[in-house]
Design a protein around this nucleic acid. Structure first.
Lengths: 340, 340
DNA sequence: CAATAGACTGCAACCGATTGCGCTGATTAT
DNA sequence: ATAATCAGCGCAATCGGTTGCAGTCTATTG
């Protein structure tokens, strides 16, 4: 591989001139430009991005950590949409994505810090916020370009984030269900330590309250985002049939599928006897029977917005700011009906 | 951010000593090690990975290009499985993944070359091989660590690759269908310019031949991996009902879903009247009705193998070699029945 | 015609690590 | 007691670009 000095020698100029020719932003006479380009051509010269990064202290890369050990992570539609949104804008802006695995929330934090501390990326988007690991706090303390997908714990008021309207959307779902006459509505969340799940729970509680419904502890369960968790949630929520929910809201479609399955095995018809609403509008939702009504969260748009905000900030040499909430949309299909 | 020299100054040693302490592989007395570590501690020193990369000419990163403009790419289960497999091993080996978008096959080639030429990654895994863009050839010409997922065109015999047994698996599927009494079997491929699709077509032809069945041109169609393509494929393959296929094999589940839909609209019952087999065993396959029989291709394992082979080669400072074929497995569900 | 303003390009000091070589002092072998 | 060995560490060159500063040359202005 040839270097800038090889080209300089061949073209009879100083290396700095070659550099200027390739970085574009300098006054170079047409004749020397041509000579340099010709020399580069025959030497098959390509500037070394690593050397450039070292010099300009910019990598044109943004980092993202994915918890590769959670199988469901790749099955759920969140991940593909996240990547799609991220790539859409990184590509358009001439950036690339540095993706690292991690084996849990604690490690996500370690990996994120590592990527930034070692200057492998210009900024990072972090996708999970859990209350037990203060990733956000440390990221802030290090003054490092970060934008979250998902709202941070309250103590970090001025981090940049994009988020879905988890609380409101859930409240709306409950309102919708209550409007159809449902009085016993179950909330099946994912990981109870994640902030999304907490926000949704708040929305659920608010919605129940708004509708004048008292909630029974039995209706609140956690399926940890897995199909089996949804399945078990129906067992746990239906100990006494008199108090059993007539509607379920699940924090993703995988759990909703588990719920559908559990209901079916108990001989309960959906939507005639029990209604079910999932979240994420994953590809399979439209193909289940009954077709699953699902709360569509615009993850792709959120990811794109996050990347845009991050890259804008990096370009201007400052920390990202701003916080945007995206509206979710209920995709009504066939898994919900009213109570007569 | 502090540098190795800051630490050296504070610890009263030479920068090279600090370097040796951090890279681990050198004789350093316990006392100086401690002093250096202490100094690093208070200065919050983290070695700059970019500088290190420049010096050692290794980035601990492997590249992969994803065609982010194809919507279906993110909906299909190939992408998540690819990433899962790649991350699983890159993580374990202390590598990270550099992901770049691209807007088509030609651009995939450009991006791949760019990542390598500019030394942003130590190697690359390329996922598509089309005959009209000679990515593989150029990659080889540049002597750059590459492993393909998918078999390259015949002229590049000694590239490293992992692939599914596309030809054989398809032949087996046809044999299976023929064994059930089907005589008019359709093949609905994806992009006809991709080598996977060509291999599958060969397998299809071989299977038909083996079963002593003559194939009608009308049974071969291309849905370009999209649901709508599958839908249209049934229109095109059923011009004359007398010659209409009694079984469909689709190159992914998305197209199979389209086929299911098209069949339904024509009032054809699956599997009673027509059988359908998809490919990829995507999450929705198990939840369709009828539940879709699908050819499961072990993409995750293939990706993991590709990454392993690549990293092994990089670690030994040589080019990856070796070619492995993975067996696909037919997951039998409810969309196939025999012809009486 | 002298002075001044650009336009080009070279110089050299970085960016932040790594590493072969050599020196010093202590330990072990003879 | 001397020589040989080796652990431990410093020196300085190197990886491949970038960029502020200054010098040269040409063109323009008064």
């Amino acid at each position: 591989m040839s270097t800038i000095r090889d080209v300089a020698a061949k073209a009879g100029v100083h290396p700095s001139t070659v550099s200027r020719v390739f970085s574009g932003n300098a006054q170079i006479s047409e004749s020397t430009r041509e000579r340099v380009l010709a020399a580069a051509q025959v030497l098959n010269f390509q500037p070394n991005a690593i050397a450039r990064s070292l010099s300009v202290r910019r990598t044109k890369t943004i980092g993202v950590i994915v918890p590769h050990v959670f199988d469901g992570y790749f099955t759920d539609s969140f991940f593909p949409q996240l990547m799609a949104g991220l790539l859409e804008v990184t590509y358009a802006r001439g950036y690339r994505l540095l993706v690292g695995g991690c084996n849990g929330y604690q490690d996500e934090h370690v990996q994120a810090m590592d990527i930034l501390a070692t200057r492998q990326a210009d900024g990072i988007v972090v996708t999970s916020s859990r209350l037990d690991v203060d990733t956000v706090g440390e990221l802030q303390r290090h003054n490092t370009p970060t934008v979250l997908i998902g709202r941070p714990p309250a103590q970090h008021a001025n981090v940049a984030w994009v988020d879905a309207d988890n609380r409101n959307a859930t409240q709306k779902v409950v309102r919708y269900l209550a409007g159809l006459g449902h009085r016993r509505i179950a909330y099946v969340g994912g990981d109870p330590d994640s902030s999304v799940v907490k926000e949704r729970l708040e929305g659920y509680l608010a919605g129940m309250n708004e509708a004048g419904l008292t909630v029974s502890e039995e209706w609140i369960d956690y399926g940890y985002f897995a199909e089996d968790g949804g399945y078990q949630a129906v067992e746990r929520t239906r100990r006494t049939e008199a108090n059993a929910p007539t509607a379920y809201f699940a924090a993703n479609d995988l759990m909703a599928i588990g719920i559908l399955q559990g209901l079916k095995e108990r001989g309960l018809a959906v939507p005639e006897q029990v209604s079910v609403i999932g979240t994420n509008d994953s590809p399979e939702a439209a193909h289940l029977s009954p077709r699953l009504t699902s709360l569509q969260v615009p993850y792709r748009a959120m990811a794109a917005a996050a990347a845009t905000r991050l890259i804008d900030a990096i370009a201007q040499g400052q920390l990202p700011r701003g916080q945007t909430t995206f509206e979710s949309q209920l995709i009504e299909r066939g898994s919900v009906s009213s109570i007569k």
